Measured scan of single mutants.
Amino acid sequence: TTYKLILNGKTLKGETTTEAVDAETAERVFKEYAKKNGVDGEWTYDDATKTFTSTE
């Protein structure tokens, strides 16, 4: 399943996707990605669109 991440950081904005077996796995991948890029925001998830959003 393809999951999408929308980053709305103070210094980094953008989108990326990952293939994962479930939302929990995708969330771990995306949170590590955000951390590596210095984004520490509030997380939301929309199951209908398989989209995570992190907003600082």
Rank of each mutant, 00 (worst) to 15 (best):
7 L>G: 01
55 T>V: 09
56 E>W: 09
52 F>D: 00
37 N>I: 14
4 K>V: 09
43 W>Y: 03
2 T>D: 03
1 T>L: 09
55 T>P: 03
32 E>R: 07
27 E>Q: 11
4 K>M: 07
37 N>L: 15
3 Y>M: 02
35 K>A: 12
20 A>E: 04
11 T>Q: 10
32 E>H: 07
25 T>C: 07
13 K>E: 05
7 L>V: 07
55 T>R: 07
12 L>C: 15
47 D>Q: 10
1 T>Q: 12
48 A>G: 08
9 G>Y: 12
24 E>H: 10
19 E>D: 10
16 T>Q: 08
29 V>Q: 08
30 F>H: 01
10 K>Q: 11
1 T>Y: 14
22 D>H: 04
10 K>C: 14
40 D>K: 10
2 T>E: 08
45 Y>V: 00
38 G>Q: 06
33 Y>N: 01
11 T>Y: 14
13 K>G: 05
52 F>P: 00
20 A>G: 03
34 A>Q: 02
37 N>S: 10
38 G>E: 05
38 G>K: 06
41 G>A: 05
42 E>R: 10
1 T>A: 10
1 T>F: 13
46 D>T: 04
26 A>W: 01
23 A>V: 13
11 T>H: 14
32 E>C: 09
39 V>Y: 12
40 D>R: 10
49 T>G: 04
56 E>C: 08
12 L>V: 14
34 A>G: 02
51 T>I: 05
51 T>N: 01
45 Y>M: 01
11 T>P: 03
54 S>F: 15
18 T>V: 15
40 D>G: 08
52 F>T: 00
47 D>S: 12
42 E>I: 14
10 K>R: 13
20 A>P: 01
28 R>Q: 10
46 D>F: 04
17 T>H: 09
13 K>P: 04
55 T>M: 07
22 D>E: 04
22 D>G: 03
21 V>K: 13
36 K>Q: 13
24 E>I: 12
47 D>P: 14
36 K>R: 13
50 K>V: 02
39 V>Q: 04
13 K>M: 09
44 T>L: 07
13 K>W: 11
46 D>E: 06
44 T>I: 08
10 K>M: 13
56 E>V: 08
35 K>M: 12
37 N>C: 15
51 T>H: 01
10 K>F: 14
48 A>M: 11
6 I>G: 01
7 L>M: 10
34 A>L: 10
37 N>A: 14
53 T>L: 06
52 F>V: 00
6 I>V: 11
14 G>H: 14
12 L>W: 15
43 W>H: 01
41 G>Y: 06
49 T>N: 07
19 E>Q: 14
42 E>Y: 13
27 E>W: 15
2 T>W: 13
15 E>L: 09
18 T>S: 04
32 E>K: 07
45 Y>L: 01
35 K>S: 10
34 A>H: 01
42 E>Q: 12
49 T>V: 05
54 S>D: 04
33 Y>L: 05
2 T>F: 09
13 K>F: 11
42 E>S: 11
3 Y>W: 06
2 T>Q: 10
1 T>G: 09
5 L>M: 04
29 V>C: 09
9 G>S: 08
50 K>L: 07
41 G>E: 04
48 A>W: 07
26 A>F: 01
55 T>E: 06
5 L>T: 01
33 Y>D: 01
29 V>D: 04
42 E>A: 12
3 Y>C: 03
15 E>Q: 10
10 K>D: 07
54 S>Y: 13
48 A>T: 12
38 G>L: 05
18 T>H: 08
53 T>V: 08
38 G>T: 03
18 T>Q: 05
34 A>R: 03
45 Y>H: 01
17 T>W: 14
4 K>D: 02
6 I>H: 04
19 E>C: 15
9 G>P: 03
3 Y>D: 02
20 A>C: 09
4 K>Y: 14
9 G>H: 14
25 T>L: 05
3 Y>F: 11
43 W>F: 09
35 K>D: 06
23 A>E: 07
7 L>D: 01
16 T>N: 05
52 F>Y: 05
7 L>T: 03
2 T>G: 03
39 V>W: 14
16 T>S: 09
4 K>F: 13
55 T>G: 05
48 A>V: 11
2 T>A: 06
17 T>P: 01
28 R>K: 12
5 L>N: 02
15 E>I: 13
35 K>V: 09
26 A>R: 01
7 L>S: 02
30 F>V: 00
44 T>R: 08
49 T>M: 06
10 K>Y: 11
39 V>H: 10
24 E>V: 11
18 T>G: 03
22 D>R: 03
46 D>H: 06
26 A>C: 01
51 T>V: 06
17 T>N: 06
7 L>N: 01
30 F>R: 00
46 D>V: 05
36 K>I: 12
56 E>F: 09
51 T>L: 03
25 T>V: 08
18 T>D: 02
49 T>P: 01
3 Y>P: 02
20 A>N: 02
44 T>A: 10
44 T>P: 00
46 D>L: 03
40 D>M: 13
28 R>S: 08
17 T>C: 12
51 T>W: 01
30 F>N: 00
13 K>T: 11
40 D>W: 14
48 A>S: 12
29 V>R: 10
50 K>Y: 08
2 T>Y: 09
2 T>M: 13
12 L>P: 04
24 E>Q: 12
9 G>V: 05
37 N>W: 15
33 Y>K: 01
2 T>V: 14
29 V>G: 03
2 T>S: 08
15 E>N: 07
8 N>C: 14
26 A>S: 01
20 A>M: 03
19 E>H: 13
16 T>V: 15
28 R>D: 05
32 E>N: 07
19 E>Y: 15
48 A>D: 11
19 E>R: 13
4 K>T: 14
50 K>P: 00
27 E>N: 05
16 T>I: 15
16 T>R: 11
53 T>R: 07
51 T>C: 04
21 V>Q: 13
28 R>G: 06
35 K>N: 08
8 N>L: 13
1 T>N: 12
40 D>F: 15
39 V>P: 02
9 G>I: 04
49 T>Y: 04
47 D>T: 08
2 T>N: 07
9 G>R: 04
2 T>L: 14
9 G>A: 06
19 E>W: 15
49 T>F: 04
45 Y>S: 01
26 A>M: 01
15 E>M: 13
26 A>D: 00
15 E>S: 11
41 G>R: 02
1 T>I: 14
35 K>P: 00
56 E>M: 07
22 D>K: 03
15 E>R: 07
17 T>R: 07
7 L>F: 12
12 L>Q: 08
44 T>V: 09
43 W>I: 05
20 A>V: 04
33 Y>C: 04
38 G>V: 03
10 K>W: 13
25 T>S: 13
26 A>N: 00
36 K>A: 14
11 T>F: 14
16 T>A: 12
25 T>G: 07
53 T>E: 05
19 E>M: 14
20 A>K: 02
12 L>G: 08
17 T>E: 09
34 A>F: 03
18 T>A: 09
52 F>H: 01
45 Y>Q: 01
54 S>W: 15
6 I>R: 05
21 V>P: 15
8 N>E: 08
30 F>T: 00
1 T>C: 13
6 I>L: 06
8 N>I: 14
26 A>T: 00
46 D>A: 04
31 K>W: 06
39 V>K: 02
52 F>Q: 00
55 T>H: 07
53 T>Y: 13
24 E>C: 13
38 G>H: 07
31 K>R: 15
6 I>W: 04
47 D>N: 09
55 T>F: 09
27 E>R: 12
3 Y>E: 02
21 V>R: 12
21 V>H: 12
6 I>F: 06
5 L>Q: 02
23 A>N: 06
21 V>M: 12
3 Y>R: 02
56 E>R: 04
6 I>P: 00
54 S>K: 03
28 R>F: 08
44 T>D: 08
5 L>R: 00
43 W>P: 01
30 F>L: 06
31 K>I: 08
42 E>W: 12
55 T>I: 09
30 F>Q: 00
47 D>V: 10
45 Y>A: 00
55 T>W: 09
8 N>R: 12
6 I>Y: 06
13 K>D: 05
